[in-house]
Design a protein around this nucleic acid. Sequence first.
RNA 1: GGGCGCUUAGCUCAGUUGGGAGAGCGCCGCCCUUACAAGGCGGAAGUCGGGGGUUCGAGCCCCUCAGCGCCCACCA
Length: 852
Amino acid sequence: MELPEKPSLDGLEEKWSARWESDGAYRFDRTKSRAEIYAIDTPPPTVSGSLHMGSVFGYAQTDTIARYRRMRGDEVFYPMGWDDNGLATERRVQNYYGVRCDPSLPYDPDFVPPEKPGKQAIPIGRQNFVELCDQLVVEDEQKFEELWRRLGLSVDWSLTYTTIGEQSRRASQRAFLRNFARGEAYQAEAPTLWDIDDRTAVAQAELEDRELAAAYHAVAFHGTDGQGDVVIETTRPELIPACVALVAHPDDERYQARFDQQVTTPLFGVSVPVLAHPLADPEKGSGIAMICTFGDTTDVVWWRELQLPTRNIMGRDGRLVAEPPEWGSAGSEAATRYAELAGKTSKQAQARIVELLAESGELVGEPKPITHPVKFYERGSRPLEIVTSRQWYFRNGGRDQELRDAFLTRGRELHWHPQHMRQRYESWVEGLNTDWLISRQRFFGVPFPVWYRLRPDGEVDYDALLLPSEDRLPVDPSSDLPDGFTADQRGAPGGFIGDPDVMDTWATSSLTPQIATGWGDDDDLFSRTFPMDLRPQGPEIIRTWLFDTIVRAHFEHGTLPWSDAKINGWVLDPDRKKMSKSKGNVVTPMPLLEQHGADAVRYWAASGRPGTDTAVDEGQMKVGRRLATKLLNASKFALGVTGDAATDGAVTGPLDRSMLATLAELIDDVTGAFEDYDYARALERTERFFWGFCDDYLELVKQRAYGSVGDAAGAGSARAALAVALSALQRLFAPFLCYVTEEIWSWWQVGSVHRTAWPQADESRTLADHAAQLDYLVAADVLGAVRKAKSEARRSMRAEVTRVCVTDTPERLGALARVEADVRGAGSIEHLDTEPGDTFAVEVELADEPAA
RNA sequence: GGGCGCUUAGCUCAGUUGGGAGAGCGCCGCCCUUACAAGGCGGAAGUCGGGGGUUCGAGCCCCUCAGCGCCCACCA
């Protein structure tokens, strides 16, 4: 055993992460059986720039569980993935290179992006765009891996996958084809929420509400057959040309006479019916609403349930379309009016139409300013519109109660940590109102493995799908050919055309359990790792990643994808505000790792319990670093005392046995906490024991272990107990402080602490030989009282004590009698008297201060 | 509108079968103690959100109110 002169935390991270890599310390052994394996479905971070402390928080917590499981003897399957496909990467490429994808442009093999992005985005073809995406994600993934390695994640880096990689594309397409064959995937032409900036449909799961300023405009519709005006209130008067009906509640007495009568729209004079529907709220505005195709999702419900016609005016670019909709008998005046609005954005059109309404006298009173929630794409900057388009969907229960119930049942089969997070899952599933829209009109994603026949007139026949066999996957229908066709038939009448869309990134990442475990590609691995054990993730993606993954596994395998889900809390900025890029309060991890060290950052992360929001707290990191330093020093000291012959002596000392009895209790406690996914409790308990161990036990046995007090048996006992406790403590801390524990372990043990068995409570318990924990407790209490007396007398801890008198219960005095020698030695106590009593009290007489 | 969580020392939090109110940080004081002075030891500090109930006994169980945070919701 060789102990360092002056142990230090410096350099441990470089030293040990390199060693772990070269030794393959965390390499997965795929010969193990399913029962022996613990498989973790690591969240693949979105590769679009930089990681922040929120990621570090959750991943560090998960790593403590992985390390615990490994030490418990499980073969841990712990891969990393990179979520590089999708809109996030596209946006990063657009900004990074100053380009935009125009799929109508041909491939330019000589294209080189500019050094710096220019003011005008350069339009490039789809293939060029995808190539830039492919390049940039590789760079980003390297940076991410560096950070994860520095943090000490014990993943097996040979198992890394990417969501745009070939295996992911194959799995996504295979699952899709099977979903389609079973009727779980379908396409439909329907109104969809549409982002006008990204020019793509978005799914319900990606929506968020934002409060926006708006105004109620009271607008007069005109009665026919001598009936007067009907005044409605709307926040979107610009949609009057898209109005198809008015609607009021069936019981609303004000409108009974109007139901099924016609009214004409202001400005355009279009005849629309007044209809009844229970969704109309008599309390809201004038109790009667204008239905437009489409202003919001309620319009879609009314449109569908009342079987109304479609009058579309909203273009996919967010501007009013050039051609006015079909208005029946409305005259050319209406068309002229509309012509003025065509090409305007929604905002511009509203401003103009309000002017026109004011001029025509059809605006009743002044607009009333309000704020109201408006649906946005969560990454978007302008409100979503609703446009009709052909899209692919997965059934997810949004339109099927029975299926929804099946997913609720799955949610109850899953073990949630913490349990209450299941509520979020349930309220999401219960609130679903559409199926899962998976197609995106984008470029960097998994293409749909689908071609369509073209009719002789060149029109697409969406019912005549051409699908590849599974052994051809992955395919790109824009460059690959359907079986039996030639390249010159692409786009030609009677030929075929590829589906131009890509799958949303969730349609791929919902398969991470399948992708990571080699579904369809590596049956042997799959059989040993699926269904997985743990899904660790953040709370904000329960409705997307967690739910979607359950949907896919339910359809494909008829099972849950994992048995347990651990949901971490939010990371808040140091002022306890939620961190977000838009607020600009994101804390980046690397500087903190460099300043405080990985163990300190891991310590901070592990102090946040599952599901508990935690602020970035450098103070906590400092505490973690101090703990690591303490471990270093205490280990050096204790090992210096025990020497190489550490375990030779029998544990006979009452104090030593009592300490080991307490240690056994700790090990049980900590193990139970880990089994319950409560790593934070495990850490807290271990830490508390350890500080007491340093303050009290080390002080109490110091002299005896040195051999300067007592006999050889006493010294041997102290040394043996020290060795046992130290070994256990180093292992208990190993899941958290992975670097410093590996370092101190290496001083006196063979092999990695992270591949060593988790401490057994029984081992300590046997050595303790039924000793009471009380002995250790009382010894520490008395020693503490003596220290306090010295501190209050402003004396050195080395000050001699002439006499101590302990008052205590007989039972505790009995315990004290067994450990008296150690207590006297540690406190420099000449005489120790005792007096039976009800409560613990200590009188201390200090020796006179020696003359200076 | 529905649901979940939180409310304990100045700050961040722990408190798992109901019986001693705790930790760290911060603050104050002391100590070069041969593992550790970018440290150690010790101290002060709380009507456990308010009210009511059950109990010999409630931070913990029940009811109720309030504040904060989050999730969900068909938000004209």
